[in-house]
């Protein structure tokens, strides 16, 4: 019996997606186990954020908003860690809060070791305010006073007696703000925090949101933009650390190449089918 062999292009067009899953998985596993140490270049948007924080006076206060939930930890947490590392290392005052209930404890776990490393005093050099609902309404209230909206911080301490809030009583007294966000919280920092209160703003967003917020960098509403795992890796390079973001870059590069390869194969199959269909249609016409 002669076995009919399916033409390769037909097979490629109907490739079982589980083969793609397998190859992508392998393309991530191998670089994680055997690092390639591919070079990493820092883009101007990330450098702009770094330079802005670096050039702030020592008496400045910087707000880092941990506006992401556990589903975005892989991309957003390395950014937040690097930013907090930079602010603490450069001696500025750091205020942290979040619009997501799950992220208060995560912020605490980030800040404690950094504070110990750089000998920063809680309540004087940094504070974690934790979670408060309200999003844009909360931000409008923060324009008047931190302590009104956050009478207690994440640890349960009264904010009234903290030195930070006697020096920087409201959002308007901040010198800079970075929103590490997985969703649309950046929107109201632009419309309220920047437009109404005049506090310069940068954003660290997941890769999905990069095209959306590039437009705001172009108009100057955002000082800079950290995008996805690569943005986090770039910032880690700038502050001189090697965290999970840097470790994931090799895997990301190889996986991208594998995906481009499959997209190419799939499109070759589709274009070939279109050409064959047109040729047979022309033959029928004749």
């Amino acid at each position: 019996m002669v076995r009919k062999v399916k033409p390769i292009w037909e097979a490629l067009g109907k490739l079982d997606r589980r083969w793609v899953y397998l190859f992508v998985s392998l393309s991530i596993l191998f670089p994680l186990l055997f690092p390639l140490n591919l070079p990493l270049t820092v883009t101007k948007h990330v450098k702009a954020v770094y330079d802005r924080i670096e050039n702030l006076p020592d008496t400045s206060a910087v707000l880092i908003a941990f506006d992401f939930d556990p589903s975005s930890i892989p991309e957003c947490l390395p950014m937040a860690i690097s930013l907090c590392h930079h602010v603490m290392k450069s001696g500025k005052v750091l205020i942290v809060y979040t619009n997501f209930p799950e992220t208060g404890p995560i912020a605490e776990r980030v800040l404690e070791p950094l504070a110990a490393k750089f000998q920063r005093e809680y309540g004087k050099h940094y504070v974690n305010l934790g979670f408060k609902p309200g999003n844009d309404v909360l931000l409008m209230a923060l324009g008047s006073s931190w302590t009104t909206s956050f009478p207690k911080d994440f640890r349960g301490n009264s904010t009234q007696e903290m030195e930070i809030f006697s020096r920087f009583p409201s959002y308007r007294h901040l010198s800079f703000m970075v929103d590490v966000a997985h969703g649309a919280t950046v929107d109201f920092y632009i419309t309220i925090g920047l437009a109404q209160f005049g506090v310069p703003l940068a954003a660290g967003v997941t890769a999905v949101s990069i095209p959306q917020y590039e437009a705001f960098v172009q108009t100057g509403q955002l000082v800079g933009l950290l995008g996805g795992l690569k943005g986090a890796a770039e910032y880690e390079k700038l502050v001189g650390t090697k965290g999970k973001a840097t470790r994931g870059m090799d895997a990301q590069s190889v996986a991208h190449l594998v995906i481009i390869f499959f997209i190419f194969l799939g499109n070759v199959s589709v274009v070939r089918n279109i050409i064959l269909k047109n040729i047979s249609a022309m033959r029928i016409k004749k």
Partner: peptide, 19 residues
């Protein structure tokens, strides 16, 4: 906010900054 602190039997802050 201060009243809530008192009601919850927390110690009053040593310094009170009413912004």
């Amino acid at each position: 906010s201060l009243k809530i602190a008192v009601n919850n039997q927390q110690s009053l802050p040593s310094k009170v900054h009413l912004s």
